[in-house]
């Protein structure tokens, strides 16, 4: 098992390397460079200083030299300096990565809490009224764009009803570490995570429903019934365990979806995470931040797939990792 994980991590290295080339080329291909963003703040800078700065930043070097420099720093954990925020990218990210992880975990957990019972009801009592309502909801949630739904949630529960804060990740007036601080944190999480969760249930519900429908007519379920196993146990021990396999396998891929979703959610709820930072950085051409974030999400996606494989091998005896 450990050997397998190590091997997979080793395979990741060339994948990440490829990604880094792609990211670098894209960054170069985009109009402007690291200085453009800076200039926007300081239009009065003269040509002399500009040329000096360009030289100092190494922007006149051939691209491969720039790439090697960038990747070298990257491997040492130096993600460069944000020209907009005037601080190391690592510092900038470390503040926000925790927030994004927290939000994503909340969305994932909430989405499973909503989707799993609904999927079970839907699959077990197919064509019942409950099933029809659930399927209706899942289609509706599939068709609703996240940013519109999130805006609506923010408008209704944040502005009109005023039940939840409309931005930020915590009330900055409360002292860090106190109970109030954590309550405030949770309070700030509720709206964005609920918005994300309510719209990300469709995959889990549909998968689970179809799996249950497929599994409940399988021969081994008949064998279990012929043994006299009570119906509730037929579901918990035989049908559901088999139906959860693809859901578990999907968990890793959900992470990829969350990264995409966090861009909208964090921006709409002014939640200081890496998704919000990403959108800001694109608009301000903050290249070092963009490249760092793309690399991080690439890494997260790869780790997600690895996680899926590990989970699958843990729950399915037919897949054993040596």
């Amino acid at each position: 098992m450990l050997k397998f994980i190590l091997r997979r991590i080793v395979i990741m290295i060339p994948q990440l390397f490829l990604l880094s080339i792609l990211v670098f080329l894209l960054a170069k291909a985009m109009p402007g460079d690291a200085l453009t963003g800076r200039l926007a703040n300081n239009p009065k800078m003269d040509a002399q200083t500009l040329a000096e700065m360009k030289e100092k930043l190494g922007l006149n070097d051939p691209p491969y030299v720039q790439y090697v420099r960038w990747i070298k720093n990257l491997m040492q954990g130096d993600l460069g300096i944000s020209y907009i925020h005037q601080q190391p990218v690592t510092d900038l990210l470390s503040e926000r990565i925790g927030n994004t992880l927290l939000l994503s975990a909340c969305i994932l957990i909430l989405s499973y809490i909503i989707a799993i019972p609904l999927g079970i009801v839907s699959g077990r009592w197919t064509n019942s009224l409950a099933d029809k309502l659930i399927v209706g909801y899942s289609y509706l949630s599939f068709a609703t764009p996240l940013f519109i739904f999130a805006l609506l949630m923010l408008f209704v529960f944040g502005f009109i009803l005023g039940w939840f804060p409309t931005g930020g990740s915590v009330n900055i007036q409360v002292e860090k570490g106190t109970v109030d601080y954590y309550i405030s944190k949770i309070n700030h999480l509720i709206l964005p995570s609920l918005s994300g969760a309510l719209l990300s249930t469709v995959g889990t519900i549909q998968y689970l429903r179809n799996e249950i429908i497929d599994t409940k007519i399988k021969d081994f379920v008949k064998t279990a019934r012929a043994k006299g196993v009570p119906e509730s146990r037929i579901y918990s021990r035989h049908i559901l365990r088999n139906s959860f396999l693809p859901i578990a396998a999907f968990l890793g891929y959900e992470i990829t979806g969350l990264i995409g979703g966090s861009i909208f959610l964090e921006s709409i709820f002014s939640y200081p995470g890496i998704g919000q930072l990403f959108l800001q950085s694109i608009m301000q051409r903050d290249y070092s931040v963009i490249t760092a974030l793309v690399m991080i999400s690439g890494l997260a996606t790869l780790l997600g797939t690895l996680l899926s494989d590990i989970i699958l091998s843990a729950v399915d005896p037919r897949i054993r990792i040596e």
Binding site: D219, F220, T223, N242
Partner: peptide, 16 residues
């Protein structure tokens, strides 16, 4: 007791 036709599908793949 009941014995089914196809032993490949008559057993739960996830249970010893």
């Amino acid at each position: 007791g009941m014995i089914f036709q196809d032993p490949l599908t008559a057993l739960n793949p996830l249970m010893s």
